[in-house]
C-alpha cells in the first residue's frame, strides 16, 4: 500500500481494527513518519471518548465489599484469576468439612416423587391453559398475522431481559412480551419508553411482583412514529423527568432499523 492508503488506515488502527497484515504496514509507517504519528495521536484522543458513550450500568453494590475482602488477603496477586480458590490450611482435615450426602433409598424415592409432583403442577399451570390476559391474546394473534413485524430482545447488552415486540401488519399497535427483568424494590417501577424522532414519551408505568414474567404490554402507538422502544427502572411513580428515563436502562430496541 502507498503512503496515502496507509494514512487512511490510521483511524482504524486507533480502534485496533486492522487485520494483521495492515497493522504491520501501518506500524512501519508510524515508525518513520511524523505526520502519521500526529494523526494517530488525534484519532487515539477521539477513540478515548468511546467509553464515555457507553450507557451506564450501576456497579453491583457487593463489589465494594468484595474489593475490601480481596485487599485483606495476605497477598493480592494481579495474575490470579478473580474466581475464588478454595482456601486450605495445612494440618486441618478437609474431610471434617464434608457433609455426608444422604443415600437412604426412601429419601431418594421421596425426592423423586416430589420432583415429579412439582413438574406436574407446573405443567398444569403453564400447559394448555387458555390465557384470559387480553394483551397476551393479542400478542399471540399478532404473531400469527401475515405481515406483522417482530423484534427480538436478547440478553446481554444492558440486562438479562428477553422478549419480543410484535407490531400489527398495519403498524397501528404492538404488544411487548418481556421477561427476565431485574427485580425492583417496593419504591420502584418499570417504565416503558416510546422514542420518536422529536420526543420521547412514557408508554406506561408498571408494578410487577418481580422481574420474572412474562409480561405483556400493549403499545397503542403507530410504528411509523417510533424510532425505538425501551424500558428502565424508575421511582414508583415514574421518571421524575416525565419524558425521559433517569434510571437503569434495561433494554432498547431500535425500530427504524428494521423497517
Amino acid at each position: 500500500m502507498n503512503r496515502d492508503e496507509l494514512l487512511e488506515l490510521i483511524p482504524a488502527y486507533a480502534l485496533d481494527a486492522l487485520d494483521d497484515d495492515e497493522r504491520i504496514e501501518v506500524e512501519a509507517l508510524l515508525n518513520k513518519d511524523a505526520e502519521a504519528q500526529s494523526l494517530l495521536q488525534e484519532y487515539e484522543d477521539i477513540a478515548a471518548i468511546l467509553p464515555f458513550a457507553v450507557p451506564q450500568r450501576p456497579a453491583p453494590a457487593h463489589l465494594r465489599a468484595d474489593l475490601i475482602a480481596r485487599l485483606s488477603k495476605p497477598s493480592v496477586s494481579l495474575e490470579e484469576p478473580v474466581a475464588k480458590k478454595p482456601e486450605t490450611q495445612p494440618g486441618i482435615e478437609q474431610k471434617s468439612k464434608v457433609v455426608p450426602f444422604p443415600t437412604n433409598t426412601l429419601i431418594t424415592a421421596a425426592a423423586a416423587i416430589l420432583v415429579v409432583a412439582i413438574g406436574l403442577v407446573a405443567f398444569l399451570l403453564n400447559g394448555n391453559e387458555t390465557s384470559d390476559n387480553p394483551n397476551e391474546i393479542l400478542f399471540n394473534e399478532l404473531i400469527e398475522q401475515d405481515g406483522s413485524q417482530r423484534f427480538t430482545i436478547s440478553p446481554g447488552t444492558a440486562s438479562e431481559a428477553t422478549g419480543e415486540l410484535v407490531f400489527s401488519a398495519d403498524g397501528s399497535q404492538a404488544v411487548l412480551r418481556i421477561s427476565s427483568l431485574p427485580d425492583t424494590t417496593d419504591e420502584e417501577s418499570y417504565q416503558l419508553w416510546l422514542i420518536g424522532e422529536e420526543h420521547t414519551q412514557s408508554g406506561g408505568i408498571f408494578h410487577w411482583p418481580d422481574g420474572h414474567g412474562p409480561y405483556y404490554v400493549l403499545i397503542d402507538h403507530p410504528i411509523d412514529e417510533l424510532v425505538s422502544v425501551g424500558m428502565s427502572i424508575e421511582p414508583f411513580e415514574g421518571s421524575p423527568l416525565g419524558n425521559a428515563p433517569t434510571g437503569e436502562r434495561l433494554f432498547g430496541v431500535a425500530i427504524a432499523q428494521a423497517q
Partner: peptide, 8 residues
C-alpha cells in the same frame, strides 16, 4: 447478541 446493535 443481535439486539446489542439495536440498543447501541
Amino acid at each position: 447478541p443481535d439486539n446489542s446493535i439495536s440498543m447501541d
